[in-house]
Nucleic acid binder design. Structure first.
Lengths: 237, 237
DNA sequence: AATAAAAAATGGTTAAACCATTTAACAATA
DNA sequence: TATTGTTAAATGGTTTAACCATTTTTTATT
């Protein structure tokens, strides 16, 4: 059973969304001046305090500019402010295959860099995590991610690790589904071990090969999962 | 002449930062209950309205939970909520070389995918942008980015294009500096043209080679820029 | 000990006032 | 006429006090 939340949205949250929508839709364009808080609150039928809560949030998000005595203006979003938001948005709406494609590209290089740059401590950390994985008797995405991230961290490129983390997080639900059987779980652990061994042996070529095999299986599982979903969709119609 | 802004930070903005810092530092941990708004505002020496403006923003950012009659609690950040923030943060604080490293990895593959997947319209678009670049007589990062992004878009992987955009945006200031001379500008245009021609000829290998040459020069310029900066720093001491 | 009722506390909201800064209008001056 | 100085109005920033609805705690009742 699943009941939808009955919690009423706070007034100021509604106001925030209202403004954000208007900005997204272009009803409010950069440079536009908003009515004064006193006018606006009356027009919207809310108190000035509530309106100000919303405006504060919008300001904090970078949507508006306010100047005492001056007024409130829709902000000219600079290119850079935009890209961060756009990236987050793109991440949210990326398809599994887009995510996987980038992961394949990056992680292939990541293992190569890891072989080069990993310290003995890094290797030890990886092994510790791998051991945890091997002792688990059901798939835990955190464990899976931890392993891949320990490799990414060994590249000493913090951005790389963080991007991998975001990427993994976004395919978590599907990998959790596809690994929800003992066979695939065991396979995964073996694949991890192969990667680990190759990195430990400082054999980049072997590590890449092991990783590609692993990612190939992940991709197969995802694509298979898609087909099954489609079949279900078809069955509905 | 350049004067620094004298605008005083708004009170609620200060409060927001204060809470964010405390959460980052761990002084406020998930699950912690905050004092009531009435108490807290008195403790902090601010009005309840100001405190509420800050709390509304923090709630909107996902830091806290509030329940009428219940109280205000530091929110248990889910993994996924966190990764988005962490990624943005990592992007902001990434070094030029980290950014460039990832760009080199991705873009190398991007040109390969572009050769595969670019439609005739994509190619046309690239050429149009390249032409604009060639007519420019001073470096315009927007033009530069537009060219690289048109290639990234041809991969039909939206996330790829957006990540590249974020990446480029973050090295914009340094590339703008390093291209601030006619020779390098001309070189850049030539390098772009080589990449363009190879993609148009559907020659992945050639395209990659041209791109690598381009990125090699970008890297050289960045590293040189660093050395100069260091020299300046040394001169100061 | 369990239940029910009442009281207190809490976040949500409104209203009215005052401050500091900015803007606009207008007068004064050269 | 054009510039400067003054004044008044408007605006965002802030504070205070009050009331509501819900939740929590306390108290009373059985």
């Amino acid at each position: 059973m699943h009941f939808k939340s009955l919690k009423s949205e706070k007034l100021s949250e509604k106001v925030i969304k209202e403004f954000e929508e208007m900005i997204e839709k272009g009803a409010l364009k950069p440079g536009d001046k908003l009515p004064s808080e006193r006018d606006l609150s009356q027009q919207m039928g809310i108190s000035r305090g509530i309106l100000r809560e919303a405006l504060r949030t919008l300001e904090s998000k970078g949507y508006i500019n306010r100047k005492p005595g001056g007024g409130t203006y829709i902000r000219e979003l600079t290119y850079s402010q935009n890209t961060g938001q756009k990236l987050i948005n793109a991440l949210k709406h990326a398809t599994y295959l887009d995510l996987l494609e980038i992961r394949e590209i990056l992680e292939q290089k990541i293992v190569e860099l890891a072989v080069e740059r990993a310290t003995d401590e890094d290797i030890l950390e990886m092994e510790k995590i791998l051991e945890h994985c091997q002792n688990a008797n059901e798939y835990d995405p955190k464990m899976d991610h931890a392993f891949h991230l320990s490799i990414a961290s060994a590249t000493k490129n913090a951005l790389m690790a963080n991007f991998m983390a975001a990427n993994l997080e976004l395919i978590k639900d599907i990998t959790t589904r596809t690994h929800n059987n003992p066979n695939r779980l065991k396979e995964m652990i073996n694949e991890h071990k192969k990667i680990m061994d190759a990195i430990k042996a400082r054999n980049a070529e072997k590590a890449q090969k092991a990783l590609l095999e692993h990612l190939h299986n992940v991709r197969k599982a995802i694509e298979k999962s898609f087909e099954e979903t489609e079949e279900k969709e078809d069955a509905k119609n």
